[in-house]
Nucleic acid binder design. Sequence first.
RNA 1: GGCCGAGUGGUGAAAUUGGCAUACACGCAACACUUAAAAUGUUGUGGGCGCAAGCUCGUGCGGGUUCAAGUCCCGCCUCGGCCACCA
Length: 842
Amino acid sequence: MSKYFPSDFEEKWAAQWVEDGLFQQTFEQTGITPDPPSHKATEGRGNKMYLLYAFAYPSGSGLHVGHVEPLTALDIMARYYRSIGKKVFFPVGWDAFGLPAENYAIQTGIPPVKTTKDAINTFSRQIKRIGVSYDWGAEIATCHPGYYKWTQWLFLQLYKKKLAYKKDAPVNWCPSCQTVLANEQVVEGTCERCGTDVVQKKMEQWFFKITQYMDELISGLGSLDWPKATKLQQLNWIGKSEGVTTTFKVQDMDIEMSVFDSVPQTYMAQTFTIIAPEHPLVYELVKGTDREEEVMAFVERVKKKKASGSFDFEKDLEGIFTGKYLEYPLAGDRKLPIWVASFAVYEYGTGIVNCSAHDDRDFIFAKKYGIPLHPVMHPEDPDEATKVMSLEYCYHHEHEGIIEEPLPFKGRRWGEVRSDIIDYLESTPYGRRDTNYKLRDWLISRQRYWGAPIPIVYDPEGNAHMVKEEHLPWMLPTDVDFKPTGESPLRLSKEFNERVEKLYGKGWTPEYDTMDTFVDSSWYYLRFTDPRNEQEFARTEAMKKWMPVDFYMIGPEHIVLHLLYSRFFTKFLRDEGYLSVDEPFAKMRHQGMILGPDHRKMSKSKGNVINPDDVINEYGADTLRMYEMFLGPIDQDKPWNVESVQGQYRFLKRVWKMFEGIKGSKDQKIKRSKDQEDKVKGKTQLVSLLHRTIKKVGDDIEQLKFNTAIATIMEFLNMWERQISNSKTQMSISDARKFLKILSPFAPFMTEELWRNQLGEKESIHMAPWPQVDESLLQKSTIIVPVQVNGKVRGRVDIGVNDEEDIVVEQALKDETIIKFIPEKTYKKVIYIKGKILNIIV
RNA sequence: GGCCGAGUGGUGAAAUUGGCAUACACGCAACACUUAAAAUGUUGUGGGCGCAAGCUCGUGCGGGUUCAAGUCCCGCCUCGGCCACCA
């Protein structure tokens, strides 16, 4: 047998597995008869295990070490769950539409179809090279007409239910990408992709009415096994808040204004009203008055500042008086001056707020412009109360204080009075209980080429009609120019325009926009269950068989958008009768980021990028996999260490060497002669450790603790080598086989090579069952227990596992080093935690 | 500003969930093999004191609970992530 050269066999086995179809066609088992539930099942419904890694965008630069970590983790799970008898479904697909390919086309003129195909080929090759046991038979790509046909179908279903609608709305526009961006794609006022300042623009846009499902998107989180932080972020994003909406008349005008307030306790403190600069009512208020010019100039200035992204609410806290007053009969004949204020948010609530002394921003604003304030709550300390009432500082409404007004509630506590005040406001003609959300409907229109065309056509009067289902897939035209013009590229396609007139009539025109790629990627896990179906997006039985996804691994960057959208689609399709699950992803975790050796995020400009191909060329794919899994906990950010990689290579070489000695040796019965006693003892110890290792590796994989699983395997190898050199004890072949098997999910290539060539097995190691743990071997008969005196470890005793306290104490008191610390030879108290520790208190 | 997470050797990190702190690995040092290097192997490796057995301090800082705290409680400090004008 030659030395360990991974390049000798890794690619051979990768090709062989594909040829033998080892991990293939699981989706075809989609079945009609569900499998009987397994007792081994710890996750998943019955015996199925749907494993999913976030839909990858096939970028031109190829696979990154950051992809290798989650891919390997899922692959380990896939191989492990298969060997304990689960039906594993582990499909692969490509989130293939999107801006980078189109931007590249703008630069080079190479069509996105071509670059995307190349990129997918590169990714596929690399993923196969690291041995990911994907089911390639279920491969899908969102840019394929066979896929986007159903994305368009989904759009039409939403349209039929009025959950897809068109509206003229101010949108975020990126001047560089020449496209509309969703709120979520605007980062600090700049475009998420190119960093250009985003501007506001009004356009007719298509929306999905995700807000229809807001309450269920909140309540559904309860049942999910997701990281706590992720759930919280979703909650914050939806931003539900309950309160009161009150409506009042503007003095001397025929205008009513509504305001939302989630802190209605302040209502008697409210002394002025602010309105967002973007609000159309601003113009109505000042139109034709002597304030019109000044106010509208202010509005323009603030809007521009906000659009540029440089708006800072503390620095730019400013406003202007409209000259109008809001009638406020809740406080007698009080009139609230109406101000346009830079910090009022048009998109939230009604865009109009009544302000009081009990809010930091309101307080600062009022002080700045000399607007009177009227505090109604104060602290219990009388000195402090005087300061608050004389407006020395803002006593924030989140503090627990004593209510002064309204009089019927006087003397009660702030937090406790809230509900009663809402009831009171509801009993007046002005208020009603109300709920507000931060979540907006989902803007899906994109003035872009490389996406799924929106399946809508317009008649000559401009009315929207659905593209007929028999015309799906509504093909993306190819005769387009990629130069950005601010128009949708599809507008200039001759074929596209002619197609519509031919199919629908003279003067009919297509919708030129394409869909946000998040639409494509928010239902792909359903298509996987029935990827070649041409009649339906997926058969109901197929989805019933596999859904929900049992384990989903995605990067933390997808916490908000992708997950909310996917949950929305799932709930919609359930309501339409296609699906029987409420939530798509039962269990989810996030992989951490692999940082550069300098502990910073990898990037070309920093020159700290590690290329997985280089690592494979030097050490092989097994080493790369082992290293990334050994680095640390999967959900944590971890720096790459160039030198540490060799540690894994060294370990694999040692394993390889061990199996050199195995070939040809037979399982021998060791004679129980005197000189053989060491051997027997060593062998017993080794076998016992092997079974503990098998158990721990399995447990660790199920808990995603891949780093400690590997450490455990290493400990076993250390022991194995020591036994060979100390007592000349070799393990039996059947035990060596078990060892190889538990290593095989981590290092699939080397273990396969040794399994077949060294152990002479005919079937792949990856089809072999996980070794059974012999529970009787897990028990040790004697253990070493640390002995503490007054809480400090002073010695150890060797005792039987089941020995009771008095025996252990007796043993401990025989030990000279221990007795040294018990000068009086007596003790007050003894604490013995069975098998763990003995503490003697003197 | 809000929410979440994290601080353990020279480095990446373990710690059966309150029970021997530093498993496993990297690095480093010495030795063996070698003409030499690489590779490999052996031994050592938290700080201080000591020839040594051993003692003592030690998980960001300060307190507390407990027979026992990296782990639980209270108060700080530092770093990272996300959201940030949401009334």
